[in-house]
Amino acid sequence: MTLTPKRAQDSLIQMTELVLPNDTNTFGNLMGGRLMYWMDIAAALACMKHCSAPVVTASVDNISFENPIKLGNVVHIESKVSRAFNTSMEVHMRVWGEDPVQQYRYKSNEAFMTFVALDPNGNSRPVPGIITDTEEEKKLYEGALRRRQLRLILGGKMKPEDADELKALFFEKI
């Protein structure tokens, strides 16, 4: 079955949340777990929009927090499918905090997650490919194969010597 590819931009989800006292730690900063919960929802929505099917989280790449988001600030999460494989999709996310009183926006973090599409029986199912339009989308698309190989190696599902895309970064072809 061949699925019609879809534009990366068509999977874009923009989610906004207000940081309330129950979302913060003792320092008045948004708890990392709460942010990851929101990111998981935004990423799942982008994938469901892309493949028109239910999805489950398969992996979460490194999430580094550049700047804390404070109590009373607004969280903006932007998520978009960066590449579709056979049954899985990589999602790129950017997170910003916004101080509504001082009226400035700042980057909090960036991350990648992978989701798998499910059929009505809960089995993985094929997903449409991705059409990239912008230079940034093309760059994310190209890097996705290397990130996927790294995830598979770290998850014990691929041997490092089989990761041709990763090897190409370190070794010259003869």
Rank of each mutant, 00 (worst) to 15 (best):
T2H: 10
L3I: 03
L3W: 07
L3T: 03
L3C: 04
T4C: 06
K6P: 01
K6C: 09
K6Y: 12
K6Q: 14
S11Y: 10
S11H: 07
S11P: 05
T16Q: 11
T16V: 13
T16P: 03
E17R: 15
L18S: 12
V19W: 04
L20R: 14
P21D: 03
N22F: 02
N22T: 07
N22H: 13
T24F: 00
N25M: 04
T26M: 13
T26Y: 10
G28P: 04
N29W: 08
M31R: 14
G32S: 07
R34P: 01
L35N: 06
L35I: 01
M36Y: 07
M36H: 10
Y37P: 03
Y37N: 13
A42G: 08
A43C: 12
A43F: 09
A44D: 01
L45P: 01
L45Q: 14
L45E: 10
A46M: 01
A46Q: 04
M48R: 15
K49A: 05
H50C: 02
V56E: 04
A58F: 06
S59E: 01
E66F: 13
P68D: 01
P68G: 02
L71V: 01
G72Q: 03
N73E: 15
N73Q: 13
N73D: 15
V74I: 15
V75Y: 06
V75K: 06
V75Q: 05
V75S: 06
I77F: 07
E78D: 09
K80M: 14
V81T: 04
V81F: 07
R83A: 07
R83W: 01
F85I: 00
T87E: 14
T87I: 03
T87Y: 12
E90V: 02
V91P: 06
V91Q: 08
R94Q: 10
V95W: 09
V95N: 10
P100D: 10
V101C: 08
Y104K: 05
R105C: 06
Y106N: 04
K107D: 13
S108F: 05
S108L: 00
E110F: 03
E110Q: 12
E110G: 05
M113P: 04
M113N: 09
M113T: 15
T114Q: 11
F115N: 00
A117N: 06
D119E: 06
D119G: 05
P120Q: 13
N123P: 00
S124Y: 13
R125G: 05
V127R: 08
P128K: 09
G129Q: 07
T132A: 14
E135T: 06
E135Q: 12
E135I: 03
K139R: 15
E142R: 14
G143R: 11
L145G: 02
R146L: 13
R148I: 00
R148F: 06
R148P: 00
R148S: 04
L150Q: 11
L154N: 13
G155H: 14
M158Y: 14
M158A: 05
K159F: 08
K159C: 01
E161P: 00
D162W: 09
E165C: 08
L166K: 08
K167G: 04
F171G: 00
F171I: 11
E172S: 14
E172D: 11
I174N: 10
I174P: 10
